[in-house]
Every structure is written in C-alpha cells, then in structure tokens.
Amino acid sequence: MEVRTIKVFTTVDNINLHTQVVDMSMTYGQQFGPTYLDGADVTKIKPHNSHEGKTFYVLPNDDTLRVEAFEYYHTTDPSFLGRYMSALNHTKKWKYPQVNGLTSIKWADNNCYLATALLTLQQIELKFNPPALQDAYYRARAGEAANFCALILAYCNKTVGELGDVRETMSYLFQHANLDSCKRVLNVVCKTCGQQQTTLKGVEAVMYMGTLSYEQFKKGVQIPCTCGKQATKYLVQQESPFVMMSAPPAQYELKHGTFTCASEYTGNYQCGHYKHITSKETLYCIDGALLTKSSEYKGPITDVFYKENSYTTTIK
C-alpha cells in the first residue's frame, strides 16, 4: 500500500517557510505537534488534498525554529505562539472599519479597549522592536488589523473576551517599542525636605499616572512627601515624541487643539466601556464603527496623549 502524501510549508514567522512532505494517514499533531492554519487549530486533523502548498504555523520545537521565533517575536515564552494563534482565530472574524481616516474595530468580545489602543497607536510616533509587531502594525494602518490585535493580546497575556485596560495595554506595548531616546527629568520640591531631581528613561519617561493635564504637570502637581507634608512635583525636561497622561476616570474637559487623542471610560472596574476622542479640525468621538463630532467635550476621561518633541522648564 502506497503512502499518500502532500507537500506543505511549516513556519513560526510566515517569513521562513520549511518544506514538509506530510503523510495523509496521520494527523498534523502526530507529525508536527500543535499546528495552526489561519489561526485555526488543526492539530487533530489529517492532511487533505486542499492543504497542498498551504502554510501551517507550528510551535518552535527545534533550534532553527526557536531562533526564527525569537528573532521575529522577541520572546522565548513557549506558550506565546499558541496564544497568538488562538487569538487570531477570533480577531480574523472582527470587522476593521476605516473611521475618520483611522483603522478602528467594530465592537465584539469586549474589544473596546483594543480599538482605543489601536486608534491611539496610529496617532503617536512609535516604532516597535519585534519585527512581528512592526509588520502587523503597518498592515493594521492599511486596514488589516487582525494579526496586530492578536499579537497585542498575546504580548499582554490576554484572551479574547476578557476586559482590558488601555493604560495597561499601552504599557505592555511600550515595553516592546523603541523608547531608548526618551528621557524625563522631574523635580520634587518640599518646604521641609528641599528639592530632589529624578531622571527617568524609556517607558517611565512617557507615562504618568495622577493627572490628565500635561500643562498642569509642567506647572506642578501636589504629591505627598515622605515627611508627610505636601510637596510639588513638576516637569523639568521632556525628550520624547509623545507623552501619555493618565488618571482614574473623572469628568474632564478636553479643549480642541490642546491634545492629540484621549480615552474615555464609562462604567466601573468590573464592567465598563471605552471610547476614543481625537482632536482634528474639530473633536471626534470614535466608538467602534461609530463616529460623532463636537466642538467641545466633557466626560469621564482616563488617558490623554500629547505630541511632544523637546521641553525644558522655565521655572527657576
């Protein structure tokens, strides 16, 4: 009895394709271990004539594949690729409408935090270190965002349907971005203890939790000093293409032309909904596939993004 075979390709990165001759009487799992086709788990399936010449994702289970996976995804987590594939199996079914010149995501599976993050990423200057993220990001900007969303979920250790947080998501993504040249110098002034300067680099240099107003941050924000008295913390120097200011959701007025974009969060910790506000020729609110415009805006804002380049204080 002759062994019926077909020729397929296996890959971990969709760049390096490895030619395989597979036995049609055995499952993919018996031949390769966990195997995925377009995100779908085909591990328990036997090869079919229609699979001839198709590319299958496999887990990096030998040295060659491990090197290829690390170079593309910059992670050695053995569960990463499987999590990416199972997320992709959902995100490829989502709709990605162009809204006001940006790629958004039609609401499904509690994905409003991903839509808000995706919209924000198209408006701030950011370059990702893992080629996987950078490639998928370019495709997302062009309207094909399924891979990018699935990668975000995998890097953030999230599953489809789980509630997510924009600030946490951005923080994970910033860790995989090139923020080497970003720098922030802060000064804390206390009447009792004097003053202390701190220099922050990388992710810490672009994120701040405690106030939404970048102007206020430049002037000074009140913080408790270690001595128990009130101290003032203010920005001395900022070198970065953008800054992200966050605070627990509270009524906040966004003035046209003073910011790049913002995240609105309605609801409580267990259950809520994100919308995205962007400042173009007027203010726009993007909620999944829905767009509304207004000249002014007041609502429960939790993150505001500002364009920056270089700032030095005039406070002496």
Rank of each mutant, 00 (worst) to 15 (best):
I286P: 01
D41H: 06
L254N: 05
A132W: 08
G164E: 00
S104N: 06
A136D: 03
L17I: 14
Y274M: 02
R141H: 09
Y214A: 02
A262Y: 02
A136P: 03
Q175L: 09
S104P: 01
C227E: 00
N89G: 13
S295R: 10
L163F: 15
D135G: 08
V189S: 11
T19G: 13
S86Q: 14
Y252D: 08
Q251T: 14
K280Q: 14
P249H: 06
Y234D: 05
V304L: 03
K255C: 10
C112R: 00
G202H: 03
D135R: 08
V203H: 11
Y36G: 04
G39V: 07
K316H: 15
G161P: 06
M85K: 10
S213R: 01
D63E: 13
Y234R: 10
V22F: 01
I223W: 10
K92M: 08
I105P: 04
C225I: 03
M209R: 15
L290G: 12
A289I: 07
H51P: 05
S50L: 14
S213Q: 05
L151A: 03
P60C: 02
P241Q: 11
E264F: 08
K92P: 03
T19N: 10
Q270I: 15
S171Q: 14
E71H: 10
E125D: 14
E281H: 05
V221F: 11
C225D: 01
G220I: 02
H90Q: 14
N111R: 05
L290R: 11
N14M: 14
Q134F: 03
R167S: 05
Q98W: 11
K229H: 10
G272E: 02
N110R: 01
K93Q: 12
G220V: 04
V42D: 06
Y57D: 06
A250F: 01
A146R: 05
L153S: 01
L37W: 13
P131C: 00
M85E: 07
I315R: 15
L17M: 10
T226R: 14
D23F: 10
N187M: 14
V188N: 03
Y138H: 12
D41F: 06
N14G: 15
A150M: 00
T120F: 06
S104E: 08
L65N: 09
M26F: 10
H90G: 14
V3Q: 11
P47L: 04
P131M: 05
L126W: 11
T312M: 15
Q123M: 09
L17V: 07
V99A: 09
M24F: 12
